[in-house]
């Protein structure tokens, strides 16, 4: 794979939150993202899966520069964007967009759909006048499957699926090269989830943009992703081709995560042996020593409890586990 094809590269990225820290108590560190490295290629979708609270949103938000990283580097289109300022940051803000999880909170309730769609164009001074922006807004509505007369309406008049379409249209207004989709479908009905996935796929086919697609289960994500990354407690455990990983997960956590997925096809389902993940997700305030999964892993030994395995390549896949070395 040519390095020029890499649109986004993240190296040892860390995002920490500080909790508490009163007069008598020490500040506690939440290591929400703790040393994540990954690459996303042009025109590709990387799925990011993991349990709730493992740091998926934080990783996405750090990449779009909503959070300041505590360490590590972010490269976008070959350029180090970790500490961008001024006009370069503005260009980055045009190229990288985000679709949020909650379709009810991601649109300003006081603005009409037209105003919402025209806002990014106004910020980046994209067209000459308002009439042209309006025309573009209508076109965007058509692309996402809504009607031109919706432009005068307010977000509360739409269903969740329609709002998510509006969010998608808003990100497309800037012709981005890369979109982070932070669980864009998990608040929607199953039938509508499929529609949104199809829409995102179709947009990608037409414009060749890349996605980081966050979800907390694998069954949805494998349909849109070329590759999948499995995340656990701030760490990437496994990255591999989506189909391969789905059929043959190698990391014990991936195996456990997959067996927790309800399988719609009973024939395929029989071949798997559901093995629910034992125990609770450890608190990120107090993560285990060594491998973060060692407290729940059926194969964990002393070494796993002492040191964190590095993410290493094995049969075209990246895995962080001593067992597969």
């Amino acid at each position: 794979m040519n390095t020029a094809d890499v649109i986004l590269k993240v190296e040892d990225l860390k995002t920490y939150f500080y909790a508490g820290g009163g007069l008598f108590s020490q500040k506690k560190v939440i290591k929400a993202v703790d040393g994540v490295s990954l690459e996303i290629f042009r025109g590709e979708t990387l799925g990011l899966v993991g349990e709730s609270g493992c740091g998926k949103s934080t990783l996405g938000r750090t990449i779009v520069k909503l959070y300041e990283p505590a360490g590590g580097k972010i490269y976008f289109d070959g350029q180090d964007v970790t500490a961008l300022q001024g006009p370069k940051l503005k260009q980055f803000r045009k190229d990288v967009q985000m679709i949020f999880q909650d379709p009810y909170a991601s649109l300003d309730p006081r603005m009409t759909i037209g105003e919402i769609l025209k806002e990014p164009m106004t910020i980046h001074e994209l067209y000459q006048n308002d009439a042209q922006r309006e025309q573009r807004a209508v076109e965007l509505l058509r692309i996402v499957g809504l009607k031109p007369d919706h432009i005068r309406r307010y977000p509360h008049e739409f269903s969740g699926g329609q709002r998510q379409r509006i969010s998608i249209a808003r990100t497309l207004a800037l012709d981005p090269k890369f979109i982070i989709c932070d669980e864009p479908i998990s608040a929607l009905d199953v039938s509508i989830q499929a529609q949104i996935i199809n829409l995102l796929k179709q947009i990608q086919e037409e414009s060749g943009l890349s996605y980081l697609f966050v979800a907390h289960d694998l069954s949805m994500v494998k349909h849109i992703s070329n590759r999948i990354a499995v995340m656990y407690l701030g760490h990437i455990m496994e990255i591999g081709d989506s189909h391969e990983l789905y059929l043959h997960p190698m990391h014990p956590y991936s195996i456990a995560l997959l067996s927790a997925v309800p399988i719609p096809d009973p024939v395929e389902g029989k071949q798997k042996h559901p093995e629910p993940i034992a125990g609770e997700l450890p608190s990120p305030l107090n993560p285990p020593m060594g491998c973060p999964f060692s407290t729940r892993c059926p194969y964990a030994d002393d070494r796993c409890k002492r040191e964190m395995p590095a993410l290493k390549e094995k049969n075209g896949r990246m895995i962080a586990c001593f067992r597969v070395e």
Binding site: R61, V64, L66, L89, K90, R93, K94, V96, Q97, M98, F100, Q101, D102, A105, S106, L107, D108, P109, R110, E119, P120, I123, H124, S167, R170, T171, L174
Partner: peptide, 25 residues
């Protein structure tokens, strides 16, 4: 709220976010 974050991601300046999105709400 996510719409304020979305405004930041699309490159809105502080004053636009404050007046257009936060105070108007």
């Amino acid at each position: 709220r996510e719409y304020a974050q979305a405004a930041r991601v699309m490159g809105a300046g502080h004053w636009r976010i404050l007046f257009q999105h936060l105070i108007s709400n």
